[in-house]
Design a binder for these strands. Structure first.
Lengths: 341, 341
DNA sequence: GTGAAAGCGCTAACAA
DNA sequence: TTGTTAGCGCTTTCAC
């Protein structure tokens, strides 16, 4: 009685069956040029007959790589990062990499370790969506593993970053509100100052329309949670004159504020037009649906992965990559009611 | 000039420095018993000095494992699965496994391949949230890699499943509506029949209160998207007498219907009380906030991982594991307005 | 074009 | 308790 094959077929099994050496089989598997057609066919047939599939662990050991790429985000359950993860999964699959998601939960320590490539497994590259890192953290990093930073910061140019042009996007968002006839346009978010790109876009759009940005229209929040948005919405309602529109730096903030407005008896967009930012899925299902800036996540993910590949293959000059975005107009700023897919 | 260490320190480097054999270092690293304290200390010091970290690729090659576990879901960007992924990431981290997320996008083919453990990398175990698989698919699977099915189905008992008791949960949800004084309680969802557990829970709660389930209250949908919910909401509004409450088999359906109700001039919960299912994050931010059934995702994830570990270690008897759940009462069924975190 | 053989870094028999 | 060593399955340099 023949015992069943104790494990998956290996390179040697294929080689034996095809009557060649493992070197040749390896060549075929890895698509080397210079193999005679007949040999190649023999090998391919043996592979098919045996159902051979390369053991990537062994391959990676030999190659000194893992084939694993890490995506580090604060928390995947947050809609924006869930969507990002989705896009990254697709982008890495196209490159035959395996994506490993890691949650920082806003921990500086975890982000620092990610910078150094310290994960459970050894990793070929890191795509990081930072929350607490500083330029100094990046400058001091010792590891040289391929790294891409997501977001609008450029980190002193010492590392590749992929983001969208937030100044332009914010400008476009506020322009849109102005085009709807709004003149008292608030901006809501954390860390709003002359450094903040979305803030600059907001101010630029107003000035461009001959409106001087009013400091009282700048509504600072602690963070970007729905509760922060709710609280900001309540503050906004008590202002007089009340703003007739508000630009929120994230959708989640905007949704919280809409909730506050509706509880306070205001109608969106009639009383206050609202624009968010990020295009999270819920913006399509909320009532009203939410006008927002949609970063091209697929492009961001592909650019990030492409940079990882380039860095791996020796091209290490850092670049600041800008992906595209679009303004999605929905009910919260006056679009007619629709049902989207 | 000494060239820089070309790579990470290896077992031999540690062994050399500590003046022992690699076997001993390996023992220390793997927490074997039977090592003299002094040796252990010497080795540990060498490890610390060198900053040694085991190469998991090599370890896995030698052990014949990958340390990788796959979570297969339709799409991570969907809130429910994003939350699930979050919990699974935590649960696998606790077990020193690395989670690889794979999106089936509802493809039968992809799900079948997952069943066989066919991923880009070789995988130690699979946790699958199925959409199209049948009992037959499971019965015919050839691979023996550890597998856990998520959800309420039990697959003829041939595989371990982890889910919650949907009959009880649905019963509790509808009981809650009855306790709010509602009597005409619709149920909304796809595939509603005597086999469907949430349907059975709905019917049981009604009968228990002396209400005979009215077939006209059963509102079938094509799927579970927001648009399906919206359409169901519109149908529900046109019924007469109109139901005064509705139980939706997913939150996303419920949110879509709420949108329809509000557009149609109805107030939730005053005109129609609404209960959803799944506790997706949006349910806390919507207006009104959404009453729902919250599966204990952390428990589900831990049970799934625990089963994977048990299967890997030879305990392969399939079991149907039931995790806990709770009813979360929010505004959509009459809870007073609150701001949740 | 193809073969032989030396690693990749670690685990785990087998010895001592 | 600790050392020696044969793999794990594949890549790749060097010959032929």
């Amino acid at each position: 009685m023949t015992p069943p094959p104790p494990t998956h077929p290996r390179l040697v099994d294929v080689a034996k069956r095809a009557g060649v050496s493992i070197r040749t089989v390896s060549n075929v598997v890895n698509d080397f040029p210079y193999i005679s057609t007949t040999t190649r066919e023999r090998v391919e047939q043996a592979i098919a007959e045996l159902g051979y599939r390369p053991n990537l662990i062994a391959r990676n050991l030999a190659r000194g790589r893992t084939g694993l790429v890490a995506l580090v985000v604060p928390q995947v359950a947050m809609p924006y990062f869930a969507s990002l993860a989705d896009s990254m999964l697709e982008a890495t699959r196209d490159e035959e990499m395996v994506l490993v998601i890691s949650q920082s939960r806003g921990s500086h320590q975890v982000e620092l370790e990610a910078l150094e490539g310290r994960f459970g497994q050894r990793i070929d590259g890191v795509v990081l969506s930072p929350t607490t890192l500083t330029d100094a953290d990046i400058a001091h990093r010792r590891s040289t593993i391929p790294l891409v930073m997501l977001g609008d910061r450029t980190w002193g140019g010492v590392v590749t970053s992929v983001g969208i042009d937030h100044v332009s996007a914010a400008t476009e968002a506020v322009r849109h509100l102005i085009a709807q006839g709004r003149h008292r346009i608030a901006i809501v978010g954390p860390y709003l100052n002359e450094e903040a790109k979305r803030f600059r876009g907001w101010a630029a759009a107003l000035r461009e329309a001959g409106i001087e940005p009013d400091p009282t229209w700048v509504i600072g929040t602690d963070g970007s949670t729905g509760e922060d948005g709710f609280a900001a919405g309540e503050r906004l309602m008590q202002m007089s004159p009340r703003p007739d529109a508000a630009f929120f730096v994230t959708d989640w903030l905007a949704l919280g504020a809409v909730r506050a407005f509706q509880r306070g008896g205001l109608t969106v967009p009639d009383d206050v037009a609202v624009v968010g930012y990020d295009d999270i899925p819920y913006g399509r299902a909320s009532n009203p649906t939410l006008t927002t800036i949609r970063p091209d996540r697929a492009e961001i993910a592909h650019q990030a992965v492409a940079s990882l590949v380039a860095q791996r293959d020796g091209d290490s000059a850092p670049v600041a990559i800008q992906a595209s975005w679009s303004l999605v107009v929905r009910e919260s700023s006056g679009a007619p009611a629709t049902i989207e897919a």
